[in-house]
Design a binder for these strands. Structure first.
Lengths: 184, 184
DNA sequence: TTTGATGTGTACCGATCAGTAATCTTATGA
DNA sequence: TCATAAGATTACTGATCGGTACACATCAAA
């Protein structure tokens, strides 16, 4: 089993799940869209859920790396970087293939709280929260825990507003609220 | 076609979709859980999507009526009622059958932006926002539009945090942030 | 008591679901 | 050049999908 084939599969499956959803993307559709045979897929991942978990892992790594990189590029101080979160969201929402947050969708499609896919989604959200908590700590702010949780509320709310309501101002509205939270 | 049978079907389908999700709830499962025959179902709704739309309409009516009633009961002034939104969320999150927001889940499961189910979800979110905007107007606050949108961000964020992250403080965190937005 | 509408039970349709088996092809390394 | 393993191809499994056909039961009104 060539590891690059595995990577190719995960990448292409990520695209497919992003476009059609998890349950709506059958293994046969995956074969059609990736050009990779079903036998090869099942050599790398013994079940569909295993593949989805690998896709979520990849998405988590890609998203967090992108988020950190953009926040650092757009802001020079810790507080500026926290506020830059919402500019990064704005960039994300404007992408033509924006379909909401993959982890929110995963949690929506897998109702069982104990399902590994649900736990992976919860872990992702926690890790993003930790990024914000660390920045708040760097900035010397008080109540970093509460502040990070509230910033996350604004972030998740903006994602929903942009995705479900198709709000064009979601990121800017959230940024204005974040300024208040930060006392800026 | 007796209208009460239709109501019974919509109510029981609402329960089933809430417990298992939309795509995961097949028509055969619905027959098993509701005790209503498939033939009767298809006499009232010609497709599964039509049934889901009726379920969402009912959920929208029930949720908004409940929200307004609880906000009025928990707060006596417009501002107190706005803040009571987050106490109502707390009550909701504590319910044993809480599975997140049905409209967020619907938007997550139906990726096509033009799908009627998506449009219904967007409409619901807009109508909740309008409730808050009206309260802000009653309170004589400025920038009612922005304020209502930001309160919605906190509400949606709290729903996601409570559902995906299983945050126990989501409603309280959101309420504290809302106090800042309201200048309270 | 008959009639027509409403509802039920059951069996079925073709399509698709996740997953498997067996055979053939291709690329790699010695 | 040859052996080995990865991948492709094709066909298949039993289960389930949304939706339908048809015969039978129930009920109300005429």
């Amino acid at each position: 089993m060539r590891p690059n084939k595995r990577e190719e599969l995960v990448q292409k499956a990520l695209d497919a799940y992003n476009r059609h959803g998890f349950q709506a993307t059958g293994m046969d559709l995956l074969v059609r869209e990736t050009g990779i045979s079903k036998t090869s897929m099942y050599k790398h991942f013994s079940t569909k859920d295993d593949l989805i978990l690998a896709v979520l892992e990849r998405r988590d790594a890609l998203f967090r790396a992108w988020l950190i990189e953009r926040m650092q590029a757009l802001g020079k101080t810790p507080i500026a970087r926290i506020l830059a979160l919402f500019d990064v969201l704005e960039e994300w929402f404007a992408m033509p293939d924006f379909q909401g947050c993959m982890f929110i969708r995963a949690a929506a499609e897998y109702q069982d709280k104990t399902h590994p896919i649900r736990q992976q989604s919860a872990r992702h959200k926690q890790q993003v929260e930790d990024i914000l908590k660390n920045l708040a700590q760097e900035a010397g702010l008080e109540n970093q825990g509460l502040l990070a949780r509230q910033l996350v509320l604004l972030k998740e709310g903006a994602i929903i507003a942009a995705h479900v309501q198709l709000s064009a101002t979601a990121a800017a509205d959230a940024k204005a609220a974040a300024r208040l939270l930060l006392g800026q």
